[in-house]
Amino acid sequence: MDVPAQPDAATDCSGVSEILNRVGDKWTMQVVVTLRDRPRRFNDLKRQVGGISQQMLTRTLKTLERDGMVVRTVCPTTPPQVDYALTDLGRSLSEPVRQLAEWAAGHLGAIRDNRSRYDANR
């Protein structure tokens, strides 16, 4: 009977860190939240994700597609229409991302106050 190999803790941690860095960056989080309700076209996403450049949105969508969190669908129209939607994996990420965003919004005032006090004492 084969016993599965135990994961290497160092490799496991670096893999988890890589994923957390990717899904925790501000553009990934905003794209995932924006796609949570429905598929969107590129320009619609760009309008919804304030401040993102076309290049950064393209890069973020390609990374999410590569990781299997977003699916890109090209509709055979003239001109071609491209929709982006969350996969099941992406939807499973959207709930914790939404909760984190709600936590951040709910604690923003307290964090700003704490920063001001800290900076004043420096």
Rank of each mutant, 00 (worst) to 15 (best):
T73H: 11
L64E: 02
V71A: 10
R91A: 13
A105S: 09
D83W: 14
P39W: 03
M1D: 06
D37H: 08
S17H: 12
L35I: 03
P7E: 13
L35V: 03
E65L: 07
V97P: 00
D8E: 11
I111Y: 08
I19H: 09
V23F: 10
D2F: 09
D88L: 08
R22M: 14
D8K: 07
A120D: 12
S116I: 07
A120Q: 13
L89S: 10
C75R: 12
Y118A: 07
C75D: 09
K46Y: 04
N121G: 12
L20A: 15
I111M: 06
T11I: 14
R122S: 07
I19A: 12
T58Y: 15
R117Q: 13
K26Y: 13
N121S: 13
L89T: 10
A104F: 05
P39L: 04
I111Q: 06
T77S: 14
L57Y: 00
V49N: 00
R59Y: 05
G24E: 00
A104N: 06
L35G: 01
P96D: 01
D83C: 04
P96T: 03
S92T: 09
V82N: 04
E18L: 14
E102G: 03
N21Q: 14
R72H: 10
L89P: 00
L100S: 05
V71E: 11
I52L: 07
R59E: 05
W27K: 04
T58E: 09
D2V: 08
T28P: 00
A101E: 10
D12L: 15
W103S: 05
S94W: 00
G50C: 09
I111G: 03
R59G: 01
P4H: 05
E95R: 13
Q48D: 14
N21F: 11
R36M: 05
A10L: 13
T34S: 09
E95S: 08
R59Q: 07
K46H: 10
A5E: 15
R112K: 10
R117S: 06
N114M: 11
T77I: 11
V23C: 09
G15N: 10
L100Q: 08
D119F: 12
Q55K: 09
N21V: 06
P76I: 04
E102D: 09
L64F: 02
P76R: 11
V3M: 08
R117G: 13
V70F: 03
V31K: 01
P4W: 04
S94E: 02
T77H: 04
M69T: 04
V74K: 10
T58N: 15
T58G: 12
Q48A: 15
P4D: 06
M56T: 11
F42R: 05
R72P: 04
R72G: 04
C13H: 08
I52R: 01
A10R: 14
E95V: 14
T73S: 09
A85I: 02
M29E: 04
Y84S: 03
C75I: 15
R38I: 00
T60W: 00
L64S: 03
L20M: 15
T87P: 02
K26E: 11
E65Q: 12
G106T: 01
Q55P: 01
V33I: 12
E102T: 08
D83Q: 14
D12A: 13
M29F: 00
R122T: 05
Q48R: 15
